[in-house]
């Protein structure tokens, strides 16, 4: 009887079947390939971490957040300022993460009472406001000139590898967090909120605390990512740090993979970065239009994402059938 109960649940841990091999393959890239590929792999890890993070608020909780870039930018500036003040690099990353989390808690308390379009607009406005603030507060942020960071010693190849593994670790931690969340009490509560906020409240879910927790979880690794990429590029400026394009790209990746699925965003980030790289290098002048076309295609032809649309389920069913034939 018990076993029939657990089969009713959505299948769990299914994503690990492809996530583990993918992660291993990514980890090997800088060992076997040159710096260019290491760089692309770093982007994959970075966007995977960001998309996984976004998924916590946008997918699990169902709040259309566009504040990713606000967290990334804040993490970048916090990390840069601390590192320039003499803090060791890794410590500065950790501190930037903490600063971002704190900011997200306060911001979440303020803006999570909005819903739907209002929340979406509010969250975009936060990014714009932070960018303007960074450009005007010159004494702290260097204003429009931006900030330089110390260049990582040991040559570009070595540095490339160091930053790749840093991003890789962030992605793994974000994935572990997603898997934990999916099975946790908090994650269940967030799904309740996503389905029907009033009913969740009535059933005993502390809706506000859950939403704020989700917002903080969705911000944490954005902060880390921002700080790491600031150190990686050794320069930050307001429009790069608080990029509107990024704030919209990350949800698109999560949607591409399947919003609300546990590890789908990783797949979305991977596919997106690959497509972007191949298209961009070929149609340099039309790169943005290409992105736009991908978005339009995604919405009309893959509304549930790569995993959500049952594409993956169909493939695994086929594999299972093949196995059955062999046996």
């Amino acid at each position: 009887m018990k076993s029939s109960v657990s089969t009713i649940q959505r299948p769990r841990g299914q994503g690990l079947v492809w996530f583990v091999p993918l992660a291993v393959a990514l980890a090997l890239v800088p060992i076997f390939f040159n710096n260019y590929y290491a760089q692309q792999a770093t982007f994959v890890c970075m966007y995977a971490a960001l998309a996984l993070s976004w998924n916590v608020i946008g997918g699990f909780t169902g709040y259309p957040s566009f504040s990713t870039a606000a967290f990334v930018g804040l993490g970048a500036y916090a990390g840069a300022i601390l590192q320039n003040a003499g803090m060791p690099m890794v410590l500065a990353w950790v501190a930037a993460t903490a600063v971002t989390a704190l900011f997200a808690a306060v911001l979440g308390y303020a803006i999570l009472r909005m819903k739907g379009h209002y929340f979406a607009i509010g969250s975009i406005a936060i990014v714009e406001s932070m960018r303007l603030l960074a450009s005007s507060w010159s004494s702290l942020t260097g204003g429009g000139e931006g900030l330089n960071l110390p260049i990582y010693p040991g040559g570009p190849d070595h540095a490339g590898r160091v930053f790749f593994y840093a991003m890789f670790v962030v992605m793994i931690v974000a994935a572990v967090m997603s898997i934990w969340l999916d099975r946790s009490r908090l994650g269940f509560g967030l799904r309740c909120v996503q389905q029907n906020e009033d009913a969740a409240d009535m059933v005993g879910v502390n809706v506000n605390a859950s939403k704020i927790s989700a917002f903080v979880l969705s911000a944490l690794f954005c902060g880390t990512t921002g700080a790491i990429s600031a150190s990686w590029v050794s320069y930050i400026s307001p429009p790069d740090a608080f990029s509107i394009l990024m704030t919209l790209k990350v949800p698109v990746m999560a949607l591409l993979g399947g919003a609300g699925t546990v590890l789908g965003p990783v797949l979305g980030a991977l596919v997106f970065v690959l497509v972007e790289q191949t298209l961009m290098s070929r149609f340099l002048d039309y790169s943005q239009a290409m992105l736009g076309l991908i978005i339009v295609f995604l919405i009309f032809f893959l509304p549930g994402g790569l995993l959500g649309a049952g594409v993956f389920a169909r493939i695994s069913a086929r594999i299972a059938r093949l196995r059955g034939v062999q046996a």
């Binding site: 949800p251 949607l255 736009g292 339009v296």
Partner: peptide, 16 residues
């Protein structure tokens, strides 16, 4: 999320 993303995608095309 869907409608906003769609109009944003269209905007990228037009802008480009």
């Amino acid at each position: 999320l869907t409608t906003l993303t769609l109009t944003f995608g269209l905007d990228m095309i037009l802008y480009n």
